[in-house]
Structures are given as structure tokens and as C-alpha cells.
């Protein structure tokens, strides 16, 4: 009797352990299946993202006259690959001048814009400004308007100020471009830093203002670098405003140059266009590559808490 019972027990436990084993395996298979599905989906999205870049790069290395002559076969690298498009841009056009113009405009407006957004971000986060909430909402609403909407009013404004067709005429609106968004971003980041740090600095002998600049600014490095990149991207790629403001060839930016060189007699010269796009993209690529570490933390607001 006892024996039978224990036997039965044993059976039962064996049974259950077997079914547990099956269940366990089932979950394991499920996990693998889920992983495969998610990889397929991700690879598809990645292809969508990467294909245009590949397309531009491969086109820049082909010598196709126009889109009408292009065929799917051109997408496959072959022995026809040539650097003639690049050589054409660099040797037959004042590419380096355009590059210099763009870097001056972009560099100065990025620095001005980010410096202003640091000061306004710190102020918005740390000072008691009357009607601060209203101000913040208004700022948010302002960021919703696209930059291109401002081109015509800006044109009239700067025409009156006689600042069209000059560096300064572009630097002012460019600096303002990402200013609101960056101020808001920096404000949010600084909000997440405990007040103790700047108070400790005040106890160590700094004035309130020095404490903000010497302690909070270094602590906000990730978000400031993020703001720098955003501020850089706008003017660097801008055509809408520069195309209207700039008329002298000596002040052409890369974006205007891109338009200028790819404009053939009748049709758009796609090979040149693509090569120019690649050349323009290289600095951005390098910047993002160098600062990618900060991009992630700039987004995630990970702080020292």
C-alpha cells in the first residue's frame, strides 16, 4: 500500500517534471521565435534607412547624365565606377570657398545660438521669472512653426536693415533658429540636476552666477553637445533662407552651391548632385560619430543623481 502510494507519487512527480520540462522548452522556443521576428522587422527598417544613402553614394560614383538614362543596373557596383563627379566639383567649382562660407556661417551661428540657449536655459530653470509657465508655453508653441515660414518676413526685415547678401544677415536668423528648442532642452536637463551642487559651490566661495556657469554648465555637457549638433544642422543644410538672401557668388554656401552645380543645361545632373551630397554629408557624419555618446545621454536626460 505504502509502496504503491510512493510509486504513484513518483509517477506524478515524474509526470509533472516532464511537463515542466516541455513548458520550459516551449518558452525557450517562443523566445527564439520572438527574437527572429523582431530581427526581421528591424532589418527591414534598417534597409529603408540605409538604402537612400547607398543610392546617393553609388550614383555619385557613376557617370550617368540624367535620371532618364538611369537603370536599376546602375545600383550594382561595377567597373564603370569613377571619381569624375567629385573631381568636377572640387576642381571646376569654388567648392572650398563654399565650404569656408558655410563653416563660418554655421560655426558662428552655432556658437552664438548655443551660448544664448545656455544662459536662457539656466535662467528658465533656476530663476524665479514672473509668468514663467506662460513663457514656457509660448516658447513651445513657437517651436511648432517651421523655419521656412519665416523666410519672407525675414527677407523684408533684413532688406530694411540692409543686411541681405552678407554673413551677418544670415548669422542672426541662424543663431535664433534652434535657440528656443535648445533653451527648452537645456532648461529640462538643468531642472534634473539637484540644487545642492551650485549651493555647495556658493558655500565654497563662488557667487551665484559663477556657481551656475562653473558648476552647472560642465555638468550639462551632454545636453549642450546635443544642442550644438542641433544648432549646427540647421544652418549647415539651409537652402531656403540662404537661397533668398545671398546673391553674390563669393558668398555662396554649400547648399546654394549644390543647387548651382547640379543644375545642368536642361536636366538635373544627378551624378554631380549625389557627389556633392556625399561631400556635404561627410562633416555631419564625423560630428555625429565623435559625439554619439553624448547624443544618447542628451536624449535620455541621464544625470548625476
Amino acid at each position: 500500500m505504502e509502496n504503491k502510494l510512493s510509486n504513484k507519487n513518483k509517477n506524478a512527480s515524474q509526470n509533472s517534471s516532464e511537463s515542466m520540462y516541455k513548458l520550459n522548452n516551449h518558452y525557450k522556443r517562443m523566445r527564439i521565435a520572438k527574437r527572429i521576428v523582431s530581427h526581421i522587422v528591424l532589418i527591414m527598417f534598417a534597409l529603408f534607412a540605409v538604402f537612400p544613402i547607398y543610392y546617393v553614394v553609388i550614383t555619385s560614383l557613376n557617370s550617368i547624365g540624367s535620371l532618364a538614362q538611369a537603370s536599376l543596373g546602375d545600383l550594382i557596383p561595377s567597373s564603370h565606377l569613377t571619381l569624375s563627379n567629385y573631381i568636377g566639383i572640387i576642381y571646376h567649382h569654388p567648392f572650398l570657398l563654399w565650404l569656408k562660407n558655410t563653416l563660418i556661417l554655421t560655426g558662428v551661428s552655432t556658437l552664438v545660438g548655443v551660448l544664448l540657449s545656455i544662459t536662457s536655459g539656466l535662467a528658465l530653470s533656476r530663476f524665479n521669472i514672473p509668468m514663467k509657465h506662460v513663457l514656457l508655453y509660448m516658447m513651445l508653441i513657437l517651436t511648432l512653426f517651421p523655419f521656412t515660414m519665416m523666410v519672407i518676413p525675414y527677407y523684408f526685415m533684413f532688406a530694411h536693415l540692409h543686411l541681405l547678401d552678407s554673413y551677418i544677415g544670415l548669422i542672426i536668423p541662424y543663431s535664433a533658429g534652434a535657440l528656443i528648442y535648445s533653451s527648452y532642452l537645456i532648461k529640462n536637463y538643468v531642472d534634473s540636476l539637484p540644487k545642492d551642487y551650485e549651493e555647495a559651490a556658493q558655500m565654497d566661495g563662488l557667487s551665484r552666477r559663477s556657481a551656475l556657469f562653473r558648476i552647472l554648465v560642465p555638468m550639462s555637457k551632454p545636453v549642450i553637445i546635443f544642442a550644438l549638433l542641433i544648432a549646427f544642422m540647421g544652418p549647415y543644410t539651409d537652402y531656403a533662407l540662404a537661397g533668398q538672401f545671398i546673391t553674390s557668388k563669393s558668398l555662396y554656401t554649400m547648399a546654394i552651391g549644390l543647387y548651382y552645380v547640379s543644375q545642368g543645361d536642361i536636366v538635373i545632373n544627378y551624378g554631380t548632385y549625389s557627389a556633392f551630397a556625399v561631400l556635404m554629408g561627410i562633416p555631419i557624419f564625423i560630428l555625429f560619430f565623435v559625439f554619439q555618446r553624448y547624443l544618447v545621454s542628451g536624449f535620455s536626460l541621464s544625470t548625476y543623481k
Partner: peptide
Amino acid sequence: FPPKLRNISMVFQNYALYPF
């Protein structure tokens, strides 16, 4: 007086060491 002129030092609960 502002804090910097008081010659007082303080230890904070979370220490507030400058992380950078």
C-alpha cells in the same frame, strides 16, 4: 551677506561633490 562672504562651509546630505 551672500554665502561666499560668510566664510562658512557646509556638508550636504548627498555630499554634492562636483562629478566632473
